[in-house]
Amino acid sequence: MELSQLIQNLMNGLAIGSVYAIFALGYTLVFSILGIINFAHGAVFTLGAYFTYTLVVGQFENNGLLKGINLFPDGSPFSGNPWLFALATLIGAAVAGLVAVLIERLAFRPMRSRGGDPLLALVSSLGVALVVVNLIQLLVGAEIYNFPSDAYGQVRPALSFHIGEKVVIIRTVQLIIFAVSLVMLALLGYVIGRTRVGKALRAVAENPGTASLLGISVDRFILITFFLSGFLGGLAGTLVGTAFGVAGPYFGVSYGLKGLAVIVLGGLGSIPGAVVGGLVIGLAEAFVPAQYSAYKDAVAFALLFVILLVRPQGLLGRAQIQKV
């Protein structure tokens, strides 16, 4: 492979991989404390993108119940400037976080207190996902909404440079995604490494049931985790939406599934594992040769299948020995 191609693939892989990573972190946080997989996470991802789009554009012209409504007749206050766009993204992610908290209250907490079959959490979270996805469709239709090109102001759409004869093109969006993801990972690393909530989180991830010993109310703690999870999911949704358009109510579904591959590859419940898993899968996909690109979507699952067979605890997970 030529150097220029290598760098191009590397950049593509890192950008998409870092989105996978922050998205998958949302899964992992919830899994590590509740031991369940929140199938509504993909829907929260989608919501995040729609929330940001609402703030930045303010109207959905094509279809649905909200057709014709314009929040900002004089132009969105968040549009046209990269910092305001960033603010809109954060608000969108935060609202997605609140939705995740709501999901916890309505769909998971009642089940915990009833002590039903833990498998039912899969069904109820998928029910939530169905509700969210179909509500979106009802409200704004199934069309793709692209962020207008001037939404984040006058920014060069791409950088290009030469390596020998070849041109390497890096979209600004990719750089932003990568940078934002790195910042998020650093922040999350700080929260988990340094704060009381983070310590409790690690403690509970290693040994469920210890949160109360650390003087933290378990319910509040779970809410915080869901908020963080939803925030990360919503943020990932916005980043992908910015790069490729907000591609309809179902656009979170495939990310939802790939996110599963990511967390298992990295090690279920392992926070660094989600990051490593995301990057590995992003890079693996980026390096699929062009003639096989149709099989790109299978790469994540092939990796998932292989890792489960050779190392079920994942790359960074720890093997569990069952006590007899």
Partner: peptide
């Protein structure tokens, strides 16, 4: 009409909560 898939999702949630 258009609400049925939303309600269908709700049915799943409610059933898993109340019919464990």
């Amino acid at each position: 009409a258009d609400w049925r898939l939303v309600i269908n999702g709700l049915v799943l949630v409610v059933a898993s909560l109340y019919l464990p």
